[in-house]
Every structure is written in structure tokens, then in C-alpha cells.
Nucleic acid binder design. Structure first.
Lengths: 213, 213
DNA sequence: TAGATTGTTAATCGATTAACAATC
DNA sequence: TAGATTGTTAATCGATTAACAATC
């Protein structure tokens, strides 16, 4: 079906998808690859190549039909019935993620939180019930949760990930500054905030310094 | 001085640097490239190639001296006097970043917060005073802030970025789901949470599905 | 029709990996 | 010394870009 798609391509398709929403809202009916390119900062060749992955129907006169392209990317990117997400670790970052993702993407709904602190367990934050980690097996099964965002302290990351995987989760977005060891059937992506900030610090400094170069 | 270094290399150097801290804490004095490789998931060739950028002194018998390598990476990666950081937008995510980065990296100190909500302005969160955005010029100058993490709502992102840039900031780590337009003297990196989650959703689903492939 | 755009293949570019002489 | 590792150059790999025939 899909022949080894690059991670970058999926990332860009997600970006195009979001951009198309705003075009739709502005009642734009058609869009050319060079317009999508201009708005995202990629090249038009890049856009057309990315769209080869999805079932598109571009037209040489009007470009792409916005509604049609949304349908095509949705079909490719999302599970038909959607996927359920949980936030593990309800600190400031966990709360921020609950707030941020509530009602944002219809095909990815955050349906539960998990923590071990009795102070937050059983509370409802942004429409999401927070459960104790002891209940992860039951809740993941009942709510058909397949993805988690992990925002626990560094030393709790691996055990928490293990528990989620044992419960049936197959994708982890990890915000803890710790490398996770997971079986090959699980996909992990690491959002390394310290690394990002250090990268910005380095390249900002370079811009500041050798302007003349 | 530095001949067009890849962003990936800087990211990995930041990772090595953090790993070396834990080795130092465990009183490990020497480390081979294949050991760094094993702990980070890269290849030993990759590690050695990355370390070419810094002023290293690897030894063919004992590998790299941990303390010496820390010094070399620090010299390369960080400004000698450090860089000051502000968080713009003190919602849940802003608070999470203030907490997360407080005292984490000595060369990158978060020294101020900014918001427009009178409820948080003038409060002190995790040792950081929160100022009104109106004061950005003064505070950025006085505290020599060169970097900001931007966690304001989507539609406030561009004006907030413009204000920071006018005040003298040269690096922005943007968490708002909006592309920023900035002059070429400013470096921007975009942490796109929606994109990351959609990527995890896609590849987790792929792992679930075509196991047999 | 003439002109611009799509879809796709070939060329290019850059990053990763392999290889190996020098070294301790 | 013999053996393993470093530092660096060449080979490989994969992603981006250019080019262009087909098309509306």
C-alpha cells in the first residue's frame, strides 16, 4: 500500500492539511502547488512530490480543489474512525497539552489523563478525567487509547512508557528528557525541549555574530 | 571559524553534552565513540564525525576524556557569558517552560516572563518576574535577553514576535501554531505540537497495521 | 489555440556511513 | 608489539530540486 514514506513528508502533509482548513474557512475553492509552497516556505516541486503520496486530483487549469485535497489528505493521514490519545503526567506541561488539543483535531481526541498524585487523580481537566496510573490497563482498553503524550519526570518516563505499552499503546510522544527503550512494534517520537532551545541559542548567536560572512 | 554546520549536528552535540553530564556524575572518566553511539542510538562514525566540529582530543587507547570533552563541547555550543531567555505568554505551557528550564542549563537562564494579562503581570513564577509586554524593550535591554520562547495564542504570535525582535531578540523558539515572518538576522525554530502528534499517530498506526510487511 | 500547471522521472545536493591510515 | 580506536576521506544513501511531457 504505502511504500516507505519519509517522516518529513508526513510532517509536511500535516502542515498542508492545517493550511487547507484556513483556505476552506476563507472560502478559497482552488489552490496551486506554488501557492501552498509560498504559504509554507517549501518549493512547489516539494509540494507536488508530497501530494503524490495521497490520492489527489489536481487540475492543470485550476490547481487543486481545496475540499477534494482535504478529503485526500485526511484519508491518507488519519484512521477512518480516529485515534484516542491520553496525557500521562498532569503537571503544567500535561495541562497545557490537554488544553491545547481539546477539540483541535477531530480525528485525534484526547480522552484521558493519568497521574499518580492523589491531588489530581479523579479531577476533570478540560473535559478530561484524570485516572491513577494503576488504572491504565482498564482505561486504555475501554477507551481504545492507542497514543500517549508522556510528560512525567525523567526518572518515571521508562516505567510509565512500559505500563502504557503493556496496556496496548502503540505510539508515544515523549516530552521527558530521557531516551525510551521500546519494542519495535511501538513508535516513539521525542520532543526534546532542551535540545531545541540549545539549537536556537547556537544559531541565533551565529546570526548575531558573522553577519558579514 | 565554523563552516556551515548542519542543524542535526548541533542537536546531537546537545544530546552528547547532556549524556556526558550523567557520565561525569557517575565518575566515568573516559568514553569511546561506540559507547556514546550506543547510549544515543547513533553510529560511532556519526559520533566521531560530529565531534570533528569541536576542539576534541580523543585518545586511541582510552577514547575521550569526559571532562575534556564536556569543556570542548561547551566552548563550541555556548556563549562564554551565557545567554538570557524570556518566556512570552504565561499560560500553562509558559509556566511549564519556566518550571522546566529553571536551573537546568547554566549557560541558558530563563530570566523573565511576559504577558498582557493583568492577572499574571508582576507575579513571580519559579523565581521569574512576569512583565507586561509593554515593557519588553526595557527588560530585554536591561537583562540582555537574546532568546524568547513564544507560547502566546496563534493570532498574537506575529505581533509578539515583532515586538521581541524590535527589542533586540535574535532567536525565537515558537510554540504557537503559526508560521512567523522574521528578518534574516533572526533565527526561528518551530515546535509544532499538532504536527508531532499527527506524525506519531500515522507511524504508530503503520506499526500496528502492516507488521508482516 | 496558447499558456500555465500537474505528475513524474532524472539530476543534484547534503547528510550518513564505511573504510582505513595513523596512533596510542 | 598487537590490537583497538581515533580522525578523516571516499562511498553510499536518501531527500530535495530541476526538468519536462502530458494536460486542461
Amino acid at each position: 500500500m504505502d511504500q516507505r514514506i519519509a517522516e518529513q513528508t508526513i510532517g509536511r502533509l500535516s502542515l498542508y492539511r492545517r493550511l487547507l482548513d484556513t483556505l476552506m474557512r476563507d472560502c478559497v475553492e482552488h489552490v496551486y502547488s506554488h501557492q501552498l509552497a509560498e504559504k509554507t516556505g517549501f518549493t512547489s516541486a516539494q509540494v507536488r512530490r508530497d501530494l503524490m503520496a495521497v490520492d489527489t486530483a489536481g487540475n492543470t487549469r485550476r490547481g487543486y480543489d481545496v475540499g477534494e485535497l482535504i478529503r485526500a489528505i485526511d484519508d491518507y493521514l488519519y484512521a477512518p474512525s480516529g485515534q484516542q490519545v491520553a496525557v500521562v503526567g498532569i503537571g503544567n506541561l500535561g495541562r497545557a497539552l490537554l488544553t491545547f488539543f481539546s477539540g483541535r483535531r477531530p480525528k485525534l481526541s484526547v480522552v484521558a489523563g493519568f497521574d499518580v498524585d492523589e491531588q489530581v487523580v479523579d479531577r476533570v481537566i478540560h473535559g478530561c478525567r484524570v485516572y491513577h496510573m494503576d488504572e491504565v490497563d482498564r482505561v486504555v482498553a475501554e477507551d481504545e487509547i492507542t497514543l500517549v503524550m508522556l510528560t512525567v519526570p525523567s526518572d518515571a518516563a521508562q516505567p510509565a512508557a512500559d505500563a502504557c505499552i503493556a496496556a496496548g499503546v502503540s505510539g508515544i510522544l515523549n516530552f521527558a528528557p530521557a531516551r525510551l527503550k521500546v519494542p519495535p512494534s511501538v513508535y516513539v517520537s521525542h520532543v526534546d525541549l532542551t535540545m531545541y532551545l540549545e539549537m536556537v541559542a547556537f544559531f541565533a548567536r551565529q546570526k548575531d555574530g558573522d553577519q558579514g560572512d
